[in-house]
Structure formats: C-alpha cells, structure tokens
Design a protein around this nucleic acid. Structure first.
Length: 943
RNA sequence: AGGCACGUAGCUCAGCGGGAGAGCACCGCCCUGACACGGCGGGGGUCGGCGGUUCAAAUCCGCCCGUGCCUACCA
C-alpha cells in the first residue's frame, strides 16, 4: 500500500514538471513519422565507409547542444519519464495483425496479495530481457501480464482485516464476504503490478488478466466439466490432508515437512481379551491421541513372536470397541520397535491402505477444527494436542504406559497457514492423474518442450512417474466455485451452468457444491485462458503456444507440469516450447531469504537506492544457469558505476563532437575499423548468450566490451585524431561517427538489460529515431571485420601495456617522457603508424635503432626486443631486479613447454594444430628468454 | 532412504579436455582536458580429497569428505 501511494505521488510530480510532456510529444511525432523503421536500418549489410549508416540523419549539432547533457545520469527521472513515454506510445501493445513471427510469453502470475520480492524481480527481469531482445529483433512480441487470485492467501488477508474490526467472516455470510474480497482486490490488488512497472518490465498491460476474470472463469468451468465428462475428475472419499486452521483440504504439494523435529516414540499396551487368553500387546506411536481411532493392531505374518495372536481380539481401554490383531506384511517391519503396529485407517495414509486391504472400519475422531469428536468418548471436545496429553495420562493411570524414547520425526505443515496438517478421511473432488501424466511426460521426451537447464527434465519426469490423484476441492469462499450441483437425494450433476444442470436433473431445486477449486487448477490454464480459450480468438491463434516460460524450480510440479497436461489435453499443443528454470535468490551466505531470519532484501529499496538499471543488471549478471543467486549488495553498487561509466563515455563523445556531420565525408583510421570489428564480435557473443539463456554471460560480455574495449581503448585511441590539429575534417568526422555509432550499438545491445539508461541515451544520440525499445537489435553482420587491423591493434596494445608495466614496476612517473627503441624492421614499421597512440597512451616516443644503450629497460613484443633508455631515469639495479624477476617466469614457461614437446606421445598423438601452437609458444618464449639474458648480461657487464 | 546440484584467489562467481580467469577486496603509482562512481600497473589459488581414463584433466569416470535443495518416508 505504502509503495503504491509513493508511486502515484512521484508520477504526479513528474507530470507537473516542465519537460516530460514535451518529450513525449516529440517522441510520438517521431513514431508517427517513422513507420516501418525497423526494416530500414541495415540488418545483414555492411556499411560502406563513405556513407553514413541508415537511421542517422543530419541534424547535429544544432539540435544536440552540449548544454543539454546533464553531468550525471539521473536514474529516477529517466525511469518515470520513459515508463510514461513507452506507455503513451503503446510500445508494448502487441498487434495481432502484425505479420511477423510471434514471440509470446505469459507471466507467472504473482499472487494478487503479493508484494514484489527478489524472486519476482529476478523472474521478471529475465523475462523482460528475452522479450525486449526479441521485440528489437523483429518479432511480433507479446508479454501477457496478470495476477493470480490466490485462494487461501487472499481469503486470509480479508478475513484478518475483518477480524481487526471485530467481525467474524463467517457471520458475514458467503456473498457479503466475497464482495468484501473483491473490494479489497480493487483497492489493494494492484500493488504488485505497480511494483513490477518500477522494474521496467515491458508487458502488454492492455492484455492484463486476473485468474478470476469472467472469461477465465469460463475456461475453468470448461476445464472441469470436460474432465468430468471424460471420467478424469471424480468425487470420492479419500484420505486427504486437512488444515484445521484454514479448515480446508490441501493437495499433497501444499503440505511441507518440518524435518528433523525432536519428539518421542511412546509405547503403550493393549490388553488382549480374556477369552483370547489375556496378556497384552505393545504398540508405539508419535501421535497417542490417534489410538482413539484404532481399529486394528497389525503384526508381520511371519513373525514367530506373534503368530499365535493373529486373529485374537483386543479390548480398547477407552471406547467401547474390540479391535482385531491382523497380519500385514506390507505395513509391518518386524525389526522396528516391538514389531506391532496400531492401525488408524482414518488418520494415517499407510493405515488407510491397511484398512482397505482388511476391510477395517475407518473411524474419524476429529472435528474440522482439530478437536476430538464424539468418537473420542471422554476426550470429546478437547483440542488434538490437549487430547494427546490426556490420553497419555489416562493410559498411565490404567498402568498400560510402556515408556517413551526420543525420536526424530517430520511434521507435516500447511504451506500457507503453517498449521500441522491432519490426514483425514473426507469426500473431495479429485483429478485422475495417470492418464494426463503420460502425454505430459512424452511431450518433453519427444522434445516438444525443452527444459533449460536440461537437468530439470529429470525432476519433472520423476514427479509425473509417481504421480497421485490431485485433490482439487477447497473449503473456501474465494475462488472458482465447483460447477457441480446436488439434488436433495444427493445425486450430482456437473454442468457448465445451473440451468444446464437442472436440465440434466430434470428438476430445479439443485444446490451448488459450496467448495471452490484449487487455485492451481485455474493457473494450469493460464497459457491459453489468457487468450480467451475456449473461444477461438485471434490472439489464441497467433500467440499460442507461447515461446518460453520463465520460472523457478519450486513450482515445476505446482504449475509447469499442470500447464503441460492441461495444455496438451485441451489444445493438443504444448503450452510453451522452452521452459527456462532459474534459481532462487538467497542472501550472501546462501541462506534462503525469509522474514523470520530477517535477511530479506526489498527490491524496491534497491531500485530506490541504485536505480532499476543497475538492479536489473546485477540480477542478470548473477543469473548463471543451475546456480542460486547469492545476493551481494556490493555488486549493485559496482554496476551502478557501470551506468556512470557509460554516461561519461557519452559525455566524451559530445564534448568532442564539434563539427560532426553524419553525412559528411569520413576517413576511417585503423582504430575505427578496429572498434567496428570488435563491436561485431561483442554483438555475436551477446546474441549467442541470450539465445542460449546464458544471461550472466550476456551481461559480462557487454560489460567487458563497453568498459574494456570501448572506454579503455577506443576512446583513448580516438584522442590521437581528435586532439590532432593536423587531422583532416574527414578524419575527425570518422572518429566522431565511430564514437556515436558504437555508443548506438552499445545502447541497443544493452537495452534488454538496462532499459531506462539506454532509452535516455538513445534519445540524446544524434540521428536516432523512435525508441531504442523498438530499434533493431545489432547484428554481427553489420560490422565488417578486417583481420589485419585486429592483429595490428593487438600488437599496439601489447606494446603499450609493456611500456606501462615498465613504468609501473620501475616507478617511472607518467609525466616522464620515454623513448621506445625498436630494431626489428617489421615491428617498427607496424608500430610507426601508431606513433601517436604510443605517445598518447604510453608516453613513449617511437624510434628505430639497432644500437641499444647499456642502460635500458627491455620490453619484448612478439619475440622482438624493444628498449627503453633509462639513462637519468632510473637506477640500473632496479632494472636488473625487474628483468631477473621476469626471467624466472619465462624460464618456467620454457621449461614447461619443452617438457610437453619432449613427450613423444604428445607430439605423435595430439592434434597437430595443438602441437604447432605449443611449438610457436615455445619458440616465442625461448626468444624472450634469450633476449632477457642478453640484456641482463649487458646491464651487468656495464657495472 | 533415494535423487539432483555445488565445493576454483580473502569474498561472490565464470571456465568444464590442451599452458588457472573476472568483479569486489588488497598493494603501489597517478586529481593525464569523459569518468577519483576514475586511470595505469601489481601480488594472490598444489581448481575439496583419493584413485582411474587420456599424449594431456580444474575440466571425463569411480569412490570418499563437506554444503545445499528436492522427493518419499518407519509405526
């Protein structure tokens, strides 16, 4: 609630400001003016150097004065500005008539009661990365958002609110209560949706759905009725999981085990009837009160200790009941305890099976709120845990207590309420799962749906293999009412409407089943109910099956598997081609985040502090396949610096943009060719990473390219031309163009991860049109590669690094000018063209000379010696020390490489390319070694 | 009890058959005309242990030890 209010206020604040309305108007005009823009910017074509790229128009610098560029990137104002702009331009509204191939995703609908947590943030950020990428890459892209009505959770929220006002929800009555819930939903249900918007997700909000929407309700009814008609839904008395707090049945999945709880295994004696010879039989239990529902004691048929007792009868100490001693080989393990087991068919799953095998009476001893009922005799009306104590005391009074020992056990609890769940005999609705599980399984086996990472397929198979029938009725008021009606005689009529049921029954005094369906029963239909199924809508035809489902492993059973069988059963199609399973977000120490542990990180706080872009980038960078995300606050801070770095690079481009004419002549130098080729390589790596759902790799590729290549190298190299008064206009123009167009590629590449920053920059870049959100994603083919330039610049980089290392290791200040002497002709002529860069980046003046002075520092570039005269710069001992240090390393290298090459087996059997490669490395290392030794000798000889 | 992951630099994690990597942290030097939310350079790991396969293993296989999770559970 609080965050919702905050958001409303802030957007009003922005709306009242001077700029955003104007911006929006400009953007709208641009969009109107540029239809089909996506197809124009050169995918697959290399740009001739003499021509400006498509999409760049000449309106610079008049419209882009430097004064407009703020000193720092303001994440908050950019976020609200662009959210508004995207919304009013309808950027994320999919057009069903758009002929391009579809890429569609349905959101895992968060609970309508929910508020955004790290899991949501990760899940939706990853979806948004895929969706934005595909939208830019030319697909008719649709991301359907929505929320889930979350039966139990929502009912509780409103129930508690009423209780706070002193109202018992039961007194209100069903209709009034459900009305209250709807009111609550309208007022507060939008919280999580608004929070998602702060993340910057590009959902099509015009298609937002709620699992209780009328047409989705129709889908649920259809689902139920058809399965019933096909005999796949039945009503029956079964042992189910009962939550006495919420007073509803639960499915097996909604029960969690509290593991390793210390308790006791308590033993007591059942007296054997006098007629059967008297004596006693000792049984043990962790739930003493259940003895009130015992209808047998079982022993193993082959157990010699008890064989004579089989068929004899026991006298129940508290209730008027005689119970038989039976033989059951399945239930009883003669090695455990006394080898005798009390049997309570109505309150234990194994005992239930025994009860069926031996036709035992099944006596329910509990009321729906977990108290003892009339079957409890003198214990009637007691709470189950009070009764447990009372039974033990009463047994002791009778002298039948046979002691207790410590015992570690698991306690089943309701996932929602936390209450201890009781197995209870109850009449409920069930889905027969076996016939549905088969196709769901083979659809994955046959590859119609693929799990990423693949390992999750095993989990999926295992669950479907051992699947049990699904209890789908819930004793709640909030949810999809079961479409079943009862006649006064108890007969059942399942139909789509009351009228249809009446027609079937031939009477009109039918009463509808009071129960609602498991929330997941409606979630199972989500991938097609959102498109209007069972109606044959255009959306359904265009966007179903969806392309990918992105979700956490914790709901593979709850949701993924159920969508699979529902989708296959009703549409004949798998609901999605890919299922990308991401991990859980934990804290730095790998602990699951939980309120009780107090280690919860609130995504909204992170967004507030560092901005949505840095937050999203962090999540993506952490999202390695098959690994949990360990949240480290320091990383967000680090990535917020990344946004700053990009912003400053942009500033640099603008500061040096004087005279830039995108349509003017351009004369590319080697660095322009180099950065273009490197851009293409980065584009390919990023695309490959996203295509393979390797999100973290995509993030780090972009990061390394922007920081390590564009900023650290290209910007620095660009200065050689920009600061050169003798450089021609065409030369400078080419550099300016490379600065801007590479930045254009960077923001397009990065947009899926950092939508706001990139949109902001796109709007400032000269010549761009429309939104980056709909600009074409870069293609590697747009960036020509000249291999010679790559090796040439790599050589330069190596040389610069060598000089810098010598400076660093010898403590030579940056200001002290150095001379770099190169003797080798080839190396010299290669470096000669980069003399300016050597001066600018390494502070070294290039000279050719075969005659090195005595006092020099030696740098080896591609096995060729270069020398830096140190006369008057540094003392000789320091250089000797430095060279000796290097020598040790190189000696080790040579030794290792020689060792491998002297291994005949390696030379003969290894891949020849590898062997050649190792030889080359050995030769290079040897050359370096020789050179170092020679230098050392010279230096030492000189003293 | 079964199953699945994971154990790599102080921390968080990439790499998963050819000479050990990133970010942060750490140590030097530098307020160089985009950025000190910065630049340049550097130190640091017998890749959990033991065996095996291979010319070659952090990388594949087996066992063991630790950690986490999932499923099923003994009254």
């Amino acid at each position: 609630m609080a965050s919702r209010r905050r958001r409303v206020r802030s957007s009003r604040g922005v709306g009242a400001g001077a700029t955003w309305r104007e911006d929006t108007a400009v953007l709208q005009d641009r969009i109107a003016a540029a239809p089909g823009r996506c197809d124009r910017i050169g995918p697959g074509r290399a740009r001739p150097d003499s021509e400006p790229p498509a999409g760049y128009v000449s309106r610079f610098p008049e419209e882009r004065a430097m004064a407009e560029l703020p000193k720092e990137y303001d994440a908050k104002s950019a976020a609200s500005k662009w959210s508004q702009a995207w919304k009013s331009a309808g950027v994320y509204t999919a057009d069903v008539n758009d002929e391009r191939p579809a890429f569609s995703v349905v959101i895992p609908p968060p609970n309508v009661t929910g508020s955004l947590h790290m899991g949501h943030a990760l899940n939706n950020t990853l979806q948004d990365v895929l969706v934005r990428y595909k939208r830019m890459d030319g697909f008719n892209t649709l991301w359907v958002p929505g929320t889930d009505h979350a039966g139990i959770a929502t009912q509780w929220v409103v129930r508690r609110q009423l209780e706070a006002q002193g109202i018992d929800f039961r007194d209100l009555g069903r209709e009034a209560f459900v009305e209250k819930v709807w009111t609550w939903k309208e007022e507060a249900g939008g919280t999580i949706v608004n929070q998602l918007k702060q993340l910057g997700v590009s959902c099509d909000w015009s298609r937002e759905r709620f699992t209780l929407d009328p047409d989705l309700h129709q889908a649920v009814t259809e689902h139920f009725v058809r399965l019933y008609e096909e005999g796949l839904i039945y009503r029956g008395q079964r042992l189910i999981n009962w939550d006495p707090l919420d007073q509803t049945a639960l499915s097996d999945l909604e029960v969690e085990q509290d593991e390793g709880v210390k308790g006791e295994l308590w033993s007591f004696a059942y007296p054997i009837r006098e007629e059967d010879g008297g004596g006693e039989i000792v049984v043990a239990t962790t739930r003493p009160e259940t003895m009130l529902g015992d209808t047998a004691v079982a022993v193993h048929p082959d157990d010699p200790r008890y064989q004579h007792l089989i068929g004899k009868t026991l006298k129940h100490p508290f209730v008027d009941r005689e119970i038989p001693i039976i033989a059951d080989a399945i239930l009883v393990d003669p090695e455990f305890g006394t080898g005798c087991v009390k049997v309570t068919p109505a309150h234990d799953p194994n005992d239930f099976e025994v009860g069926k095998r031996h036709s035992l009476p099944m006596i329910n001893i509990l009321t729906l709120d977990g108290k003892l009922n009339a079957e409890g005799g003198r214990f009637e009306g007691m709470d189950r845990f009070d009764a447990r104590k009372a039974v033990k005391e009463a047994i002791a009074e009778l002298g039948l207590d046979r002691g207790a020992k410590e015992h570690v056990l698991n306690i089943p609890r309701s996932q929602r309420s936390g209450a201890i769940v009781e197995p209870m005999l109850s009449t409920q609705w069930f889905v027969r799962m076996k016939p549905l599980a088969g196709p769901a399984r083979s659809a994955v086996e046959l590859g119609f749906t693929r799990f990423v990472p693949t390992q999750w397929e095993n989990t999926y198979y295992a669950w479907l293999r051992d699947i049990r029938d699904w209890c789908i009725s819930r004793q709640l008021w909030w949810g999809h009412r079961i479409p079943a009606w009862y006649a006064p005689d108890g007969s059942v009529y399942v139909a789509r409407t009351f009228e249809a049921a009446c027609e079937k029954a031939g009477r009109d005094d039918l009463v509808q089943d009071p129960d609602v369906l498991d929330t997941w029963f409606s979630s199972a239909l989500w991938p097609f109910s959102v498109f209007g199924w069972p109606a044959k809508t255009e959306d359904l035809a265009k966007y179903y099956p969806t392309s990918v489902l992105v979700t956490g492993f914790d709901i593979i059973f709850f949701w993924v598997a159920r969508m699979m069988f529902a989708g296959i059963h009703f549409t004949g199609n798998v609901p999605f081609s890919d299922v990308y399973i991401h991990a859980l977000v934990r804290d730095q120490h790998g602990e699951k985040m939980s309120k009780t542990k107090g280690n919860v990180v609130d995504p909204l706080t992170v967004i507030d502090e560092w901005g949505a872009d840095a937050f999203r980038f962090t999540l993506v960078a952490f999202a390695a396949q098959g690994r949990d995300v360990l949240w480290d606050p320091a990383r967000v801070e680090g990535y917020s610096k990344f946004t700053n770095k990009i912003w400053n690079a942009l500033k640099f481009a603008f500061m040096n943009a004087e005279g830039y004419d995108p349509n003017g002549p351009m004369e590319d130098g080697p660095y322009e060719l180099w950065i273009r080729a490197r851009t293409g390589a980065a584009v390919q790596r990023v695309r490959d990473a996203i295509d393979g759902y390797r999100f973290n790799e995509a993030a780090s590729e972009i990061y390394n390219f922007v920081w390590g290549e564009y900023c650290d190298w290209y910007i620095e190299l660009s200065k050689t031309a920009l600061y050169d008064d003798n450089a021609s206009r065409a030369r400078k123009n080419a550099v300016q163009h490379a600065l801007f167009s590479t930045m254009g590629a960077i923001v397009r590449l990065l947009h899926p991860i950092m939508p706001f920053l990139t949109e902001e920059i796109w709007s400032l870049l000269p010549g761009t049109e429309g939104f980056v959100a709909t600009a074409p994603y870069p293609k590697a083919a747009d960036y020509p590669v000249e291999a010679a330039v790559l090796t040439d610049v790599a050589r330069l980089q190596q040389t610069i690094t060598e000089v810098r290392r010598i400076r660093g290791e010898m403590g030579i200040a940056r200001k002290v000018p150095l001379t770099l002497l190169v003797s080798d002709d080839g190396l010299y002529s290669s470096l000669y063209r980069h003399a300016a860069a050597l001066r600018e980046l390494a502070g070294a003046q290039l000279e050719q000379s075969a005659d090195f002075p005595k006092l020099v520092a030696i740098a080896v570039v591609e096995s060729k010696e270069c020398a830096i005269p140190l006369e008057g710069v540094v003392d000789i001992a320091a250089e000797i020390a430095r060279l000796e240090k290097t020598l040790v390393k190189v000696e080790k290298d040579v030794e290792q490489l020689d060792k491998r090459l002297s291994n005949k087996a390696f030379v003969e059997r290894a891949n020849p390319e590898i062997v050649a490669d190792i030889r080359a490395k050995r030769d290079a290392a040897t050359a370096k070694l020789n050179s170092l030794q020679a230098s050392l000798k010279r230096l030492k000889g000189g003293t």
